[in-house]
Structure formats: structure tokens, C-alpha cells
């Protein structure tokens, strides 16, 4: 070996970054990330992209079919709903609600779940018992029934949907974090940190948390798809965002009355839900494959 090879140091490369590289190699997962990105762009740039005002009614265009069917009009590509509103524009604006709720609920739930899970797993004892009982109780309720009950109590509205979903959603990251914390707190480097005078806060935030983030990220993405479906379900039941604000769930519900004569009113928002949820699921499976050593070859 020459001097040059001895002093050569590879570029800093954390486990996280290596995992990310694995993820980028997964083509299917990358494709679904692109689909997700398209939806995100739709949310951010809705006013620029949408061809029409999503709430502009026009009774002359009532139940106008998509452009490629007789009676269609290329200015209204996906047709119009029962009040003559442009379906494409409403889907673009509806993406805002779905993605906003998905992201906010997951961020909220993951934050709370990390705090509760770390506390339960690190302190054990009565903290663990109390948090564990709350988790068990919440898990005992069927999710949708729980959310419907809460919505009925709090009344509809954007903030209330977020709260109704987050109230239960935090349980999932909490259990993941607690389990991982239990394993990591016994490792030698945590003991080493204690031997160097580290306090509980430092050990939880700097020693344990960075080492358990991978499974938390994976679980949170998987759950985001679930939250989006739940939001659509609540909106479908009329407990979600109130009209005239466009939401995919309420659009499907609106089209239900005309499903035989005007299938497009329900079908296109339904397809949007399927596409987004599928993209998130595939992407999160790619994440799991890349980040979870049990799934990587």
C-alpha cells in the first residue's frame, strides 16, 4: 500500500445516506415519488394549473361529460359535476385538502408519538404503564368510528378533521418508538454516554432518537396513505371539509346520485385517491426495503 491509499478517507457517509442511495435505485419507488411530487405541485400551484375556478357553477354545463365523449368540451377535460363545476379543477384543488391533512396529521402524530414513545421506553415504570394503557384503549376503538364520533362532537371543519385523526394516529409511531427505544437504551453507547455524564434528555434526543428514526420515517409514510383515505371517508360521509370547498371524498359522494347517468363525477376523484394512496404505499415500501435491514438483500 502506498501513502496515498493510506491517507485516503472515503467521503462522510452515514447509514441514513447509504439507505437513501438504496432507495434511489428502486425504480418503482422512484416512479411513485414522481407521482407524489406531481400531486404536491398540484397543491402548491393549484391556482396556476387549474383551468377554471373550482367553485364556479354553470347550470348549462350540468353533468357535462369528459372531453372525449359526445357532448364533451376540451375546455372541461374531465367533464362537469351536478352543479356544472369543472371536475379537473376541483380535483386539483381537492389535492390540497388531502395532502394538507395527510401531512399535518402525520407530522402531528409522529411528533406526539415520538415524545410519548421515548418517554415510555426510556423511563419505563409508571410512565410506561400510563402511556401503554392509553395506547391500548385507543387501539381498542375502530379508527373510523372513533373519528366519526369525534367529528360529531366537535363539528366539521379542517382543524377538527386534523384533530380527530391525530387523536388516534399518534398511537402508531408511539408504539414503534417505544419498542425501538427499549432495544437501543440497553446498547453500550447509551451506557457510555451515561458514563460520560449525559443526562436523560441528552440520551433520549442525541443517543436514542437519531438511531431509531429510520423505522419511524417508514411507518409514518405508510400511515400517511391511511390518513388520506380516512379523510376521504369522513368527507364522503359529509363530516369533512364543508361545501363548496372541493375535497375528493365529498366529490365522490356528490357523484353518487348520478352514478348511472354521469359516472365521471365520482370516478375521477376516486381515481385521484387511488393514485395518490398507491404512490405513497409503493414509495413507503421502497423506503422500508431501503431502511430496514431485514428487507435489504
Amino acid at each position: 500500500m502506498t501513502d496515498a491509499t493510506l491517507t485516503h478517507t472515503p467521503p462522510a457517509d452515514s447509514l441514513f445516506r447509504r439507505n437513501l442511495r438504496d432507495f434511489r435505485r428502486n425504480r418503482l419507488a422512484m416512479a411513485s415519488v414522481i407521482v407524489m411530487l406531481i400531486f404536491v405541485i398540484m397543491t402548491v400551484a393549484a391556482p396556476l394549473i387549474a383551468p377554471h375556478d373550482p367553485n364556479q357553477t354553470d347550470l348549462f354545463r350540468r353533468l357535462q361529460p369528459p372531453a372525449w365523449i359526445d357532448g364533451g368540451d376540451w375546455r372541461f377535460v374531465l367533464g362537469c359535476d351536478g352543479l356544472g363545476r369543472d371536475i379537473l379543477s376541483r380535483i386539483i384543488y381537492g389535492a390540497r385538502i388531502s395532502i394538507f391533512i395527510g401531512v399535518v396529521v402525520i407530522v402531528l402524530a409522529t411528533g406526539v408519538g415520538i415524545l410519548a414513545g421515548l418517554a415510555a421506553g426510556y423511563f419505563r415504570g409508571w410512565v410506561d404503564v400510563v402511556i401503554g394503557r392509553v395506547v391500548d384503549i385507543l387501539l381498542g376503538f375502530p379508527y373510523l368510528i372513533f373519528a366519526i364520533g369525534l367529528m360529531a362532537m366537535m363539528g366539521p371543519g379542517l382543524v377538527n378533521i386534523v384533530l380527530a385523526l391525530a387523536y388516534k394516529e399518534w398511537v402508531i409511531p408511539c408504539r414503534v418508538v417505544r419498542g425501538e427505544t427499549l432495544a437501543v437504551r440497553e446498547l453500550e453507547y447509551v451506557e457510555a454516554a451515561r458514563a460520560l455524564g449525559a443526562g436523560s434528555g441528552h440520551i433520549m434526543w442525541r443517543e436514542i432518537l437519531p438511531n431509531i428514526m429510520s423505522p419511524v420515517i417508514v411507518v409514518s409514510t405508510i400511515r400517511m396513505a391511511n390518513v388520506i383515505i380516512l379523510e376521504a371517508s369522513l368527507s364522503f360521509l359529509g363530516l369533512g371539509v364543508q361545501p363548496p370547498t372541493a375535497s375528493w371524498g365529498s366529490m365522490v359522494s356528490d357523484g353518487r346520485a348520478f352514478i348511472l347517468e354521469a359516472w365521471w363525477v365520482s370516478t375521477f376523484p376516486g381515481l385521484a385517491i387511488v393514485l395518490l394512496v398507491l404512490a405513497i404505499n409503493v414509495a413507503s415500501q421502497g423506503l422500508r426495503d431501503a431502511f430496514d435491514p431485514r428487507f435489504s438483500e
Binding site: 447509514l15 453500550e188 453507547y189 457510555a192 458514563a195 442525541r206 437519531p210
Partner: peptide, 17 residues
Amino acid sequence: IAMTMQDALTALNPALT
């Protein structure tokens, strides 16, 4: 008082530089 641990391979936090 400082202490070094028995197993050097696992006594450093893998997530921090």
C-alpha cells in the same frame, strides 16, 4: 472520572460523527 466501555465496537453512537 471517565470510563471506557468493554466493547469499543458498540460503544460509539452510530448516528453521530
